[in-house]
Structure formats: structure tokens, C-alpha cells
Design a binder for these strands. Structure first.
Lengths: 209, 209, 209, 209
DNA sequence: CGGTAATCGAGACGGTACGTCGCGTCTTCGA
DNA sequence: TCGAAGACGCGACGTACCGTCTCGATTACCG
């Protein structure tokens, strides 16, 4: 049908992409951004620089791709009620925000504010698809009668995702503070639920009645 | 005197620092970290690179200094009750998030996640001092009995500031949507207030019950 | 007076040029054109590539300069009569034609035939200054009454230089054939002298009277 | 039949060689050795690089073949006496020197001086076959008693061809100076004839003694 | 009031990585 | 079986930037 892939000339080696992405992740993990060298990645992947630049326009794009392909974004969530759904969303988003993929995505979203060409290229990045994910989540909650129909889905997504992102970004990179994480998420989700007037049909660990 | 070896030789030009910091902010705002070049900053400030390295040990330190010295942050807010305080804070933060300084601060906090040199220089950046600003604000609300003492001040700050930042960043640069802003803030603040169990003791601009 | 050299900024290291040119000659001598690498030249000269490209626009220009600066072109010749002058000119030109400098010069003269921009840059290259050298030489011969005034100086230069150049170019690069050289030059010069009706006032080793 | 394993599969395209050689000449004529790219030649000939390397082992061999197969060289000349022969040879060589083929041949002879691969491939290029052409010419002149037997045929060829080549190459590309050409050739040939002691036995277009 | 010493703008310096280009080889599909 | 298209590993090119250095020209103070 829409065979945009040309069937002419030597086909690209299929697993080459993955070899390069693997090498990129290794190098980035070992040496960080300042030691993230295209030559090094190419050498470690056993690949010529030419083949590499046939696929990615520059080393930033390569890194973004390497990171993105390793950590999937936020998936569909449907656990039965808004409380569980939101808690799971928060957990996934926290992981995303702490990942390099999330970092890169944020950077792209910011750079487009001042870079016109970038803005056009980025278009509808995956980032705002967290909105899509939560929109369905909120709609179901309304249908179940858990919250009022007047609640803006965007607001809930902004609150949860925004608080988490801000929290993570404010934390210096060294401290993982895993222990602190879970209770923070619980408190956050509970607060948001109360804020939107959540009435849970099957009480689980909600605040006092 | 405590002058170990000072006061000899030509004194440093006083406003040179500020000229450089201004130029640094401009360049970083325009082109981001990858376009943040020492030569460019020096040229735009009309300053020799030598004088520049006389003051900052490397370009990361310079950038951090530039951003830090520009961040107006959030001033002290005390309007009588939490509702007014939070609304004012939201307004200020919205302005900050949309400003160049806010953009730069966000960028800097992100770049440090992947840039070792930056992370070392930044340390405890001023960004989290929005927490300090809100901490007092929440403490007073507790004292006035408007909210429960168990509420974490950090969480409130994260919610309001985070939702706003995310909202602004998700918006494509073209759409200013000023009209939409005020109602968004109102809805946001109301939701947060409800979430933390706010009960206003002295009704001000709400109709009598 | 015409101080085109700027007196601002750090002055260029004076002997750096010569260090680079030396290294260039060494590398070219060791490895030939295909092994003549800019990185290698820079490394062997202990010089950054940047400084190198500050002085020469590309590696061809560097090589030309390296070669040119080692072998001066044809100098002024004045030995008393046309026979001696011409013989000396032939010898010098033979050396020039066999040198890499001569090679490069020839190449430039040819490339300008098909390259408009090159033609403008080259302008009056040093090559045609062999005409200047011989013009004076022939003029003096006419003044001494050794040859007729109707003889075109250009023709004599074309004959001697052209025959030598053609002879050298036709010879494969391996064979130096030094032995053959001197007698060839003698025969060549004698033929040309006879061709222009040379009457030697002080017979030396001219052909039969 | 003698078909051991032939006549099976697609037969080779016959004029493919010539298409490639044409393209090679065009590219080399336009851009010289440094711009002589295999990819460019293949593209311009509408030929795959594979087919190209099926016929020539490397690009040097291809180039030599291209130039060699185009050089019209100098045909057999036999007009009755040396004067007429030499004048005709001069005219032909002048045309050759001004032609694209002549330019390419000269270039090739030069490039081999600095390019090892080229030198190995070229070996005894056809260029010196102008010597063969003139050798017969001079031999007949000796047999007719027009010049002394001691004259080296090579020298005459070098003088005439060399002077013409040098003259043409020294001329900037803009000036065609066609008018000047014929008289230059006459003067040149006359000088060379006098130089080798030419005495024409059967006057043809000169007035009676 | 003239010497001394630090600072200024300017820009060259040694390195290192970037992204591009070309060679000669290879691998596919269509003719 | 051949041919076109073009991807592949390799390696050099010319550019950009960092952080350091060297220049002549200021500009204070200190003796």
C-alpha cells in the first residue's frame, strides 16, 4: 500500500540500527554526555560513521533515539477506578521523568519555544500523548460517576505530571531518593483526587470519610 | 587590613561582569546549551575571552551564574488567607514560566541532568527557593487553621508550579492564549485548595452561605 | 607605511609557518601525495589543525607553498653572452621542471583553463616570469649584436622552456636519467642558438665555425 | 559451438564502456583530478558502480583508459619535404594542445608525477607517440639530405611541440588570439628548421634563388 | 610624577570532535 | 547472468570551540 520504503539498491542492514543504539546507550552510560562521541559509538558498534549519519542527522538525535527506544512512554491504563488508574499513571510518569528519555523530551519541548525550525519538525511529539492517556482515564471515571463531568482532563494530567516533573527536576541528579518516592506519589495522588471531588465506589486506602 | 595583595594594578572594570552575564543570557536564551559559545558571549559583550576566564573557571560556571543572577524568583506573598496567597503565587509563577528567565532556568535544571560539569557547578540552584517562598505561605495558613498541619508545603508548591510549567511548556509557541490563562489559574488553584482541605475562615469575595 | 599586518591580538608565531612547511615536505617525501595527510603534517609539526588552516585554505595550497618555498624560481642571469646565459637558463629551468614546485605551477596554469574562479585568483602567477627573465637576456644579446633585433624574446623562451618541460613530462617519474640530461641541454641550446642566427663574439664551445 | 558457459543470462550491454569513458572524460575535463569522482562518473554515465569496477580495477585505471582512448594523437604526415611536414605537424599539435583532449593528456602526465597509483597504471602512455610520428618524419628528411644525420628526432619534436604547448598554456583562457596563431607557427617552424641546418633541395613555395 | 603591576580587547595557539565526502566492496531486485 | 541502485567500513577533510597564551594599550597605586 503505502510502501514509502524504496525497493531499490542494497537494503539497509536491519539490525544495524539496534547495534548502534546499544553502543550509544553503553557509551552514554559509561562516559556521560561529555564523553558521548560519535566516533566512539561507531567504533564500538563496528559501524562506519557514514552509515550512522544515514540514519540520524546528528549525535543528539542519535542519543534521543537510543534512549527513547529503551524506555517506552506511558501506556494505556485501565485498572477499574480512578484512584488506581491515577496512582499507576503517577508511577509510570515518575519513571519517565527520571529517565533520560523524559529528559530529552523535555528538552525538545523547551527548545521549540525559541527555535522556529525545531518547532516545525517536532510537531506533535510523543510528550503530549500523556494527555491522551489521561483523557481516556478521566472519561471513564466520569462515566463511572466517580467525579463530576465538569472536570477538565487536562488539568488532572497537568497536576499529576507537572508536580512529578517539577519534583524530579529540582532534585540534583545524584540523589535517587527511592525511598521517598512512593510516599510522595501517594500523597500527591490523594490530594489531587480530593481536589477533583473523587467519590470512590469501592474504598481501598482513601483518606478518612 | 585584610588586603593580602590587592589594590595593585589596574582595577577590574566594574560593570564588565554584568555585560557578560547579559550577553550570556541572551545567547543561552536564543540558542540553548549547544549554541552557548564562549566566543559568542565574549564577542556580544565586547569583552576579551581572557577577562572572561579571569572571572569564571569555565563556561558552565558562567552560565549558571548568568541564569542565577537573573531569576527574579517569587517574592514574599502575604495577602491574608491561603486562597489569595496561592492565586497570587500562581500568577507570578505563570509569568515566570512564560518569561525568558523561566525558560533558561528550566533548561539549566535539565541540562545538569546530563552534563557533569554543569551539575557540579550548580549544586543547590535557586530554583527550589520557590519552595522557600511557599513554605512560609503554607505555614501561615496552618497557623490560621485553614488547612491541616499534615500537609507538606513542598507538595502544594509542586502542584501549582508544576501544573503551570507543564501547561506552558506543552503549549506550542505560537499560541499565546492569554484569555484562557486566567480561568485556567482559577480552576487550578481551586482544585488544589480543595485537595488540601482548605476551609476559609474569613470569607472575602465569596457570597454568604 | 603600508602596514597591512594588524598590530592587534596575539601575533602569529613566526617560525610556525616554517615548522609546518618542513613537516609538509617530510611527509610528502616519505609518503607521497596519497599519504600526504593534514593531520599527519599538523601532528609532526606539533601544531593544531586550526593554526594550519589559518594560513592555508586547503592542503593543496599548503603543499604548493611548501614546495615553492624550498626551490626558488628562475633568477636573473647575466653571464656575458647569449650562449652562456641560455645554457644557464636551460639548466635552471630543467631543475624547476623536475621539481615539485614546477609540477604544481604547471598544474595551476592548466587548471585555470577550465576553472574560472581559479583563473581570477591565479592572475599573473610566477610561471610567466620566466618570460621576464629571458626577455632581458635576449635584449642584452641584441644590444651586443649577437642576434638580429627581429627575434621575438617569447619565442626563445618558449623553445627552450617548452622543449625541456615536454621532455621532462614525457619521462616516467621513476627515471631520473641524470646522465642524459646535460648532453640533452647542450644539444637543445645549440640548436636554438643556430635557429636564431647567433653569432658568438667570443667562441667558447660552440659548434664548428 | 565453443560456448563453454556463455550465452546464458543477460548479455553485457555493449556500449557501456564507451558511455563510462565519455563520462569520465567530461568529469576530468571539468573538474580535474581532485574532482574526478567515481560516483560522479557512474551517475553521469547512468551506470552502477559495480559494473564500473567490473571493468577497471580502480579509478586511476579508468581515467587513464578514458584519456588514452580519446587522444587523436598525430597522424602520419608525409608532404614531400621537412618544411611542409613540420608546419603540418605544428598545426596539428597546436589544435591538439588547445583541445580538451590535449588538456586532459597534459594533466594526466602531470598528475602521475605526484600520484603513485596513476604512475603505475599509466606506464608508457601514448603521449610520447608524437615522438614516433615525428621520428619517421625526420628520418625521411635525413634520407632526402635535407638535414644532417646527427640530429636527434626527439629534439625536433620536443622543440616544436614543447614551444607550442608552453605558449598555449601560458596564455590566459580568455584570449583566443586566433589571428596571432598562424604567424607564430611560421616563425617557430622557421627557427627550428634553421636550428637543425635545414636546406631544402626542392624549393616549392619560396621564390627562386 | 614616573615606575610597576594588574586588567583590558583582540585573537592565535594545541587539541578534539563534528558532520561530510569519497573509495572500493557488498548485497539486493529487476531485466 | 548482468546491471542499477545504493548501503557498507574506513579514513581524511575542513570547521568549530574550548581553555590557554601572548601581544600592545590602559589605568590605577605607590614610592
Amino acid at each position: 500500500m503505502t510502501s514509502s520504503s524504496r525497493a531499490v539498491g542494497r537494503p539497509r542492514v536491519p539490525n544495524l540500527d539496534e547495534r548502534v543504539l546499544d553502543a550509544a546507550r553503553t557509551v552514554y552510560g559509561d562516559r556521560g554526555w561529555s564523553g558521548f562521541t560519535v566516533d566512539e559509538v561507531a567504533k564500538r558498534a563496528g559501524v562506519g560513521k557514514g552509515s550512522l549519519y544515514l540514519r540520524w542527522p546528528n549525535k543528539a538525535a542519535l542519543l534521543v533515539d537510543a534512549v527513547r527506544s529503551a524506555a517506552p512512554s506511558v501506556g494505556n491504563i485501565n485498572l477499574g477506578n480512578l484512584e488506581l488508574d491515577l496512582r499507576e499513571f503517577a508511577r509510570q510518569w515518575m519513571a519517565f521523568a527520571q529517565s533520560i528519555e523524559g529528559l530529552m523530551t523535555s528538552r525538545l519541548l523547551m527548545d521549540r519555544q525559541s527555535n522556529k525550525e525545531l518547532a516545525e519538525v517536532i510537531g506533535e511529539l510523543d510528550y503530549p500523548d500523556y494527555i491522551r492517556a489521561t483523557r481516556a482515564l478521566v472519561r471513564r471515571a466520569v462515566e463511572r460517576g466517580e467525579i463530576d463531568p465538569g472536570i477538565t482532563p487536562t488539568l488532572i494530567a497537568d497536576l499529576v505530571a507537572g508536580a512529578i516533573t517539577t519534583h524530579v527536576r529540582s532534585t540534583p541528579p545524584g540523589l535517587a531518593q527511592v525511598a521517598h518516592t512512593e510516599s510522595y506519589l501517594t500523597q500527591l495522588v490523594n490530594t489531587v483526587l480530593r481536589g477533583v471531588g473523587y467519590r470512590n465506589p469501592s474504598p481501598e486506602d482513601s483518606p478518612s470519610p
